[in-house]
Design a protein around this nucleic acid. Sequence first.
DNA 1: TTGTACGCGTTATCAC
DNA 2: GTGATAACGCGTACAA
Lengths: 346, 346
Amino acid sequence: MNIGEIARRSGVSRSTVSYALSGKRPVSQDTRRRIQAVIDELGYRPNAVAKALKEGKTRTLGLVIPPASRRLTDMQLGFVASVVDAAARADLDVLLSPSGGEHDRSFERVVGGRRVDGVILMEIRLEDDRVTRLQQSGLPFVGIGRTGHPEEMSWVDIDYETLIARCVHHLADLGHRRIALVNRSAELVAAGYGPGHRAQAGFTRAVAERGLHGVQRCCADEAQSGVTCVERLLDDHPDLTAVATINEAAMPGMYRALAQAGLAVPRDFSIIGVAARDWAENLHPPLTAADVPADELGARAVEMLIQRIADPAIPHRHVLVAPPVSLRGTTGPAGRRPEAGDPGAR
Amino acid sequence: MNIGEIARRSGVSRSTVSYALSGKRPVSQDTRRRIQAVIDELGYRPNAVAKALKEGKTRTLGLVIPPASRRLTDMQLGFVASVVDAAARADLDVLLSPSGGEHDRSFERVVGGRRVDGVILMEIRLEDDRVTRLQQSGLPFVGIGRTGHPEEMSWVDIDYETLIARCVHHLADLGHRRIALVNRSAELVAAGYGPGHRAQAGFTRAVAERGLHGVQRCCADEAQSGVTCVERLLDDHPDLTAVATINEAAMPGMYRALAQAGLAVPRDFSIIGVAARDWAENLHPPLTAADVPADELGARAVEMLIQRIADPAIPHRHVLVAPPVSLRGTTGPAGRRPEAGDPGAR
DNA sequence: TTGTACGCGTTATCAC
DNA sequence: GTGATAACGCGTACAA
């Protein structure tokens, strides 16, 4: 069922069929109708692969996601959803490449095989092989996240450093003196995961500026780890009165640990984070958080990528968002933790 | 940077380069090394599009997902993750098609344009245009879910009818007499969404078998709707003592509504569901549920699809899973609901 | 090992 | 203005 078959049955040449379909050359009403009738009858659709080969455009975007084995966070899912959505609106398809490791086969197929017109990269590290690979391949790409050399690529990112600092200041304004940062997993931070490092930097800076006492902890990206992480924090630092976090997945567990320790939020303990907007809203209780507009970021990344594909020579663009903190009632004035056996803790 | 360029620089013909790479014909050690040196130097990788055109195989699977706009449930995400994962293990890429409506452009591009070797379809309705379209296209496909004419396609599915019946029997065994089914959204059920209808059927049947009093409710797929749905159920049926549900997304809200009504689970009220295994485990409290092995189903679907691609003539296969109910403590003996103002409710 | 036809749609070029 | 011919994109595989 190819264009030659349509041409034969309509009694015209292949090029005439092509012109009739694309409209790039006028074709007489009569011929056009005859061709269309055959097409409708046989249900012919041009072969997208042949078209892609000829035009050198696949009309497909590659989306590199973390390996499916480890669960994606809600924010990551928000990115994926918005990228897929924005691409569909531009009549582009999305090819998924689940690749975390260094020399991933899926990544190599998509990038090396020129299966896509451009790539969107997630979960970028400060030093990232995939970025290097993409840069030398010349394939247009946009990061959701950035490396330690952010000038050399196009990206959209969340300003974790500023946002965590903002969280710390908010807590300090409420009178908290001893606070903790619950970061992403130790492996991720050790691997040079940007947000983890930038959150640390922002925390350290803000804590110093306000003369607070700050503790930092890594925590695996899942609820149970959130439980044990907070349990240990409470044990080790009886005078802790608040936590800031960028670890969405651990949040439900952190709530649970506080409840089990008999601490009411926000009366006895405050908690604040950086999280996807709708996720923070739907948490129970809704979390006071810097609301990351995941859907907007994915759409911006797609838009930037489409521009780079159209003209790879344009200068790199950088979008750094620092959304305001939405107060939803999980932070309050620092009190004294009603800790049994340590009534005078400060 | 194509195969001709490599051939020129190595001083051999294009076909020799091709054979050196594929190994389908012997090539002398010397020539092979010379070719490999050029390839390494230039970083040549065969163009996947040209290869796909020549071979008539894209080495890509299409995955049709619900439109990204409405959030995917945890079970759907589990399907996507396991499909992507299983495909990657077989060195296949996955092309996403977010399409819910009838004549979706993305779906038409993927199916009509022969961009993929096969398709996995999710969220199938009893009457589903996309299934019809795929059947007449001749493109191999496998459903995660099935239509009302299940013989005419290959699928893996969850036996919601049996599972909900099993839930009802479990509740009946515990002495519950008045129970409710919380279904998926009214629109989905009205549109002929299979699981919704089959759950209804199983519920109706089991309730009749045990002589119980059953109520059915549709509920939008999100937490807030779960709250109002349960609130209304409790209002309308003061003697209700248990709920069974297939609506994951509404569950957190249902828990909340029970807590706010002062009902302790499972002392005052029992709740049971059909849900993805790890999701049910991580809920708080962990939900007594028929544990759907989402990862296994996705992998099975991919495996079946790969077989159908290899030989489209093999008979259709059907995998219907009915996992056992895992008791996690959200069901207990029917008591009397400690309802203020209605102490004698039965 | 090499030459070459092929898969399929697009488009420049030529002819009427 | 319309229609047809042929080359092209790139890798594969048969015939020589």
